[in-house]
């Protein structure tokens, strides 16, 4: 059983005009096996929350805490957070030319597990995971994210989630830019990973369509850097019908 606990989180970014506060007191608890959807309009701070938990240096935590099973996540380096079990599927994965997917995945798996994976089972696991995500085997020899289509980048992110087996997965707009087929394939991958590891999932999205494939138990509406409303799956349906206007009217962004 793993618990990610976020309490009173305030986060700023440094801009040319000085520090700008983006998160203004976020409280959220995610446990193993739970799926939480964070929904909200553009610019509400959803991605900032994801990157702050992962430890991107651009974001400065000014107050509040993030813990994983009681351990202080905010004092860990980026790679320590990943090794502790936090995984962030990125909206815009970065190209790393010269480094092949297979080399990258093996290096990451070795780092996360603390030992190199057994060669035979590793090759088999990789092949199976790639097959399930409808990825061509030749993909393994391409350079990380170099020349990947939008859909290939997202599949590659979820491939990593399946192979690295995190305890807490944050998916940052994994649905953006995917056609219906790719959305289904990627969603199935998330569901498989969740089933086999019982990880917690924090699903960040602007649209409701991914929720047809990945079912959240909890829905949080994010507005102006904090959670404005919380509920069950019915809240997502309501947003589908009404949009975010209701929340934006009173928000001072």
């Amino acid at each position: 059983m793993t618990t990610l606990q976020i309490t009173g989180l305030h986060v700023s970014v440094n801009t040319e005009e000085g520090a700008k506060e983006i998160l203004r007191g976020v409280d959220l608890t995610v446990r193993s096996g739970e799926t939480h959807a964070i929904m909200g309009p553009n610019g509400s701070g959803k991605s900032t929350l994801a990157y702050s938990i992962a430890g991107h240096p651009k974001y400065v935590v000014t107050s509040g805490s993030v813990t994983l099973d009681g351990s202080d996540v905010l004092t860990m380096s980026v790679d320590e957070r990943a090794r502790a079990g936090i995984f962030l599927a990125m909206q815009y994965p970065v190209e790393v030319p010269g480094v092949t997917v297979s080399n990258f995945l093996r290096t990451a798996k070795t780092a996360v597990d603390g030992e190199a994976p057994k060669l035979r089972t590793w090759v088999k696991d990789m092949k199976e995971a790639m097959g399930a995500l409808r990825m061509d085997p030749a993909f393994a020899e391409r350079n990380v994210n170099e020349g990947f289509s939008g859909g290939e980048k997202k599949r590659h992110e979820i491939l990593q989630m399946e192979l690295l087996r995190p305890r807490m997965a944050i998916l940052d707009e994994t649905d953006s830019g995917l056609d219906v087929d790719a959305l289904r394939i990627v969603s199935e991958g998330v569901n498989r990973a969740k089933e086999s590891t019982d990880c917690g999932v924090l699903l960040i999205t602007h649209y409701t369509r991914i929720l047809r494939y990945i079912k959240p138990e909890f829905v949080h509406v994010f507005v102006a850097g904090r959670i404005a409303e919380e509920g069950g799956p019915e809240l997502a349906e309501q947003l589908e019908d009404e949009g975010y206007d209701r929340f934006l009217a009173g928000a001072s962004v």
């Binding site: 430890g55 790679d79 957070r81 990943a82 790393v96 080399n103 990258f104 780092a111």
Partner: peptide, 18 residues
């Protein structure tokens, strides 16, 4: 690039070498 690699658990020195 460093963030991406580190976010997959790869320590900074290993990432740099990669």
């Amino acid at each position: 690039q460093l963030f991406y690699l580190q976010a997959r658990g790869i320590p900074q020195d290993v990432a740099r070498r990669l």
